[in-house]
Amino acid sequence: MDAEITLRVDGADQPVTVDTRTTVLDALRERLGNTSPKKGCDHGQCGACTVLVDGRRVLSCLMLAVAADGAEVTTAAGLANGDLHPVQRAFIDHDGFQCGYCTPGQICSAVGVLEESDGELSRAEVAERMSGNLCRCGAYPGIVAAVEQAAGEQR
């Protein structure tokens, strides 16, 4: 069953026809040509599909596009607004990735973490809050260092 919806993706309104079964992730990747968020599991188990919806980090693979009609979706592509986002720069500085497949999700998640936290985060807290984003390449030390750097810059 098809439905007409509009997603506001990385600042631009995108009307799109979706199957009711289409997730926000598939709508972005297969219908809107935005392949920034990745599909690692399609079941909420890896975090690769993390995007910001209305400013909060969520898993786009478990969100039905019809249910997100009108939502403001930000992907890692949209975070880079001409210049890279400070979190993105920090990931490059600390080599917080290897293959890069988990990375757009890590970046969105990290932006969400910084948004959510009211005080300074310990190393362990950063690691815990970033644990919904698996990295099979094992870039965790770089990821934590990158989030800490970005948090420092934000303060």
């Binding site: 909420g44 975090g47 980090r57 969520v58 998640s109 969400g112 959510e116 809050r129």
Partner: peptide, 9 residues
């Protein structure tokens, strides 16, 4: 439980 993203949903 779960992860930050899942708890947001």
């Amino acid at each position: 439980g779960a992860s930050g993203q899942l708890r947001n949903m």
